[in-house]
């Protein structure tokens, strides 16, 4: 066909462009290579503190329930297999495989050596200034399978 046109509205499709995981991974690797490990953590921490400011406020106001909603929404949207366990002072999120790593591996995108910092550093920064702490209790770099734990800081 010599000539064709296509016109779409935003509402015609769901917003889920998983190749963006590959672009973030490329950015992490670039920072790591050119500026070192600490730059990766500084960048992720700065970004988290700014972009997730409303979530961090919600954590201060509503506690771990706010984080639970955040992770459930995110992993559901990304079609991950995950389990969430919330008690009064602890939230544990078990992810069978990181959807970002699954997508990157199946599409041939390299996974940055420090890609796990998008979980560890981001979770830690989410908790800054709140009564909670984050711990990446388990992480498999091959699949991104993880156990993420949030718990009340000891007084």
């Amino acid at each position: 066909m010599a000539h064709k046109t296509m016109s779409c509205k935003a509402s015609d499709h769901e917003y889920l462009h998983k190749d963006f995981h590959g672009a973030l991974s490329a950015g992490i690797e670039y920072l790591h290579t050119h500026y070192g490990e600490q730059a990766v953590r500084d960048y992720l921490r700065e970004f988290t503190r700014k972009y997730y400011a409303p979530l961090r406020r919600a954590i201060r106001q509503r506690g771990l329930a706010a984080l639970k909603v955040h992770f459930e929404t995110m992993y559901t949207r990304e079609r991950a297999r995950f389990r969430v366990r919330l008690t009064r002072d602890e939230l544990v999120i078990s992810v069978a495989a990181c959807p970002a790593i699954t997508h990157m591996k199946s599409h041939g995108y390299p996974v940055a050596r420090l890609f796990h910092e998008t979980t560890r550093t981001v979770n830690e920064a989410l908790c800054e200034g709140t009564p909670f702490k984050a711990e990446l209790a388990e992480y498999d770099p091959e699949t991104g399978r993880s156990v993420q734990r949030f718990f009340r800081r000891s007084r």
Binding site: Y15, H17, F20, H21, G27, M74
Partner: peptide
């Protein structure tokens, strides 16, 4: 993890 739907601000 940062969701791909939140990549743009990260970028």
């Amino acid at each position: 993890m940062i969701s791909c739907t939140e990549f743009i601000p990260a970028y």
